[in-house]
Nucleic acid binder design. Structure first.
Length: 502
RNA sequence: GCCCCCUUAGCUCAGUGGACCAGAGCAUCCGCCUUCUAAGCGGAGGGUCAGAGGUUCGAAUCCUCUAGGGGGCGCCA
């Protein structure tokens, strides 16, 4: 209803309600606008309203109000922009959850960054967030992984559909040294999983990601599986057919819960796990960040939750589209099935975590993206991550340069277009955080950071901060500090460093 | 065949119902460092917003259809 204007000539905010009411009331929007404008009681920060055809009510922030924000923001530090909208509601964000049968691949990194920043956004808006990694530590793939290590120890080729590569060989050597050459498949799998989880944790740590909990799939099979199955059976939604156990959807296609081998399917595990989160552990909201190749699972899982009496709206699944990697003119698409294995570790070595994070955050999750390795690792102005970081470094330098200024700040003299434009960008920050958190769209942070950095660079170029006039200097220094704090908070929410110098 | 995402400037992408020329970065061309960091700033050129129809006072944005690209639809994970 109240929105930011795209065009500065139309003020800072506009109200479009009159246009929306016009249809229902069968009256001219301009009349409604005039009437409404007369009755508006505006916060003190706004100048008088303007009515623009065909029926907009435009609002403009007063320079005096903007100037009065400088000192509080400059002094607010890390709290600036945070809010308590969530009222400490328990929310879980589950992300990464890559199989512990191998190292983290670069294709996992996008979901890792998106999930982490969603968690940061929810924390910043007052939710009690738990970050969880779901560990598939049992089942077919785990056994296959154990068999693959065993084969490597014995110098045999990997089993059909098994795992291979240098990391398996390495693991085989380490396992043989520790467990002996005749260790069981189970013991080898366990050894490999522990080692992989360590390496995954190490990679995530380099990406500045830390989970609170690593949830073991195995733990679901200590009764909770049977409890859930009993409930489904009592609802009459389970049948046995062809030696397998099926979930009756009522729709066109039933789904297998237990294979003929007696093993649960991933679908069954998903049901057990999500019932555990939403019912047993009582998270009011759960956000899962999945790769787009899991899209087909969303509806059937929600359907199953619903019949179990759990409101499926409490679960939000963010599907992150796949990433392709560009090196020079070569483009490699990274999907799970293509088996392209650029590891996250290699990419972190090559381009660093700031660039990886920033690049992923420059795209909305539902857009396919191309990760340009050459661009990401360039230490030059072509690399967008430096643009924002450089703005922060410049302001940090200004702060040092002006440390000796003592006078009382003359905030009312921050009246140039560059200073006021910068202020308008700064005061938007809490709205940006709230909107990004509500929409679960981390990329809004990156776009804001770019925009704020642009205002900072223009300000820096056109307005000399440290000048002979001490009261003006003092005011500009505080404005610089307010901008620096805001940019630092934005970068912090993105998990990107805000360097003092570059 | 069915489901999901995408199609906007040469390239990579924002914008997803409102207001004069549809935005940014890169790339191309032209300017700006005796002054707090030029990893910066300013300017120029460049677009039938894939196509068609519809809803609306108004559509890049919503609805339908078509075309193209990607992903999924398995007792795989």
């Amino acid at each position: 209803m109240v929105e930011r204007t795209a065009n500065p000539a139309h003020g800072d905010y506009s109200i479009t309600l009159p246009l929306k009411l016009a249809r229902e009331l069968h009256r001219r929007p301009a009349q409604i606008a005039a009437e409404l404008a007369g009755r508006l009681s505006l916060p003190a920060g706004f100048a008088d309203v303007e009515i623009a055809p065909p029926g907009f009510i435009n609002l403009r922030l007063r320079p005096s109000w903007l100037q009065a924000q400088v000192e509080p923001i400059a002094g607010a530090g890390a709290g600036w922009g945070r809010s308590d909208l969530g009222h400490e509601l328990p929310v879980q964000v589950e992300f990464v959850s890559s199989n512990p049968t191998g190292p983290l691949l670069f294709s996992h990194a996008r979901g890792a960054v998106v999930g982490d920043v969603i968690a940061r956004l929810l924390e910043a808006t007052g939710f009690a967030v738990q970050r969880e990694y779901y560990v598939n530590d049992t089942g077919n793939q785990v056994r296959l992984f154990g068999e693959s290590i065993q084969a490597a120890i014995r110098g045999q080729p990997a089993p059909e559909g098994g795992y291979q590569g240098a990391y398996v060989e390495e693991m085989a050597r380490a396992a043989a040294a520790k467990l002996g050459k005749n260790a069981t498949v189970e013991a080898l799998a366990e050894f490999g999983i522990v080692a992989n989880l360590e390496s995954i944790r190490r990679d995530l740590d380099r990406l500045r990601i830390a989970h609170h909990a690593w949830f073991s799939e195995r733990s679901l099979y200590q009764g909770w599986d049977q409890d859930t199955m009993a409930k489904l059976r009592s609802l009459g939604l389970v049948v046995e057919r062809d030696g397998a156990v099926w979930f009756v959807t009522g729709g066109d296609k039933d789904e297998v819960l237990y294979k003929r081998t007696g093993e649960p399917t991933y679908f069954a595990a998903d049901i057990f796990y999500h019932r555990d989160k939403l019912e047993k552990r009582g998270y009011q909201r759960v956000v899962d960040v999945w790769g787009a190749d899991h899209q087909g699972q969303v509806n059937r899982l929600k359907q199953a939750l619903e019949v179990l009496g759990i409101d499926p709206a409490r679960l939000t699944v963010i599907l992150v589209q796949l990433v392709s990697v560009r090196r020079g003119t070569e483009i490699v698409r990274m999907s799970r099935r293509s088996g392209v294995g650029i590891t996250l570790e290699e990419m972190l070595d090559e381009v660093g975590s700031d660039a990886v994070r920033y690049f992923f955050l420059l795209r909305s999750s539902d857009a396919h993206m191309e990760f340009d390795v050459d661009l990401a690792k360039q230490q030059s102005n072509e690399n967008p991550v430096f643009y924002a970081q450089y703005a922060h470094a410049r302001l940090s330098n200004v702060r040092k340069f002006g440390a000796a200024v003592q006078a009382a700040p003359a905030f009312e003299r921050l009246d140039s277009e560059w200073e006021l434009d910068l202020l308008r960008a700064i005061v938007r920050w809490p709205d940006v955080v709230r909107e990004a958190a509500e929409s679960l769209e981390p990329h809004r942070l990156a776009f804001y950071a770019n925009e704020l950095a642009a205002r900072i660079h223009v300000f820096y170029k056109n307005v000399r901060v440290v000048v002979d006039d001490q009261p003006v200097s003092a005011a500009r220094l505080r404005l610089s500090e307010a901008a620096r704090v805001t940019l630092a908070n934005a970068l912090d929410l993105m998990g990107v460093a805000a360097p003092e110098r570059m």
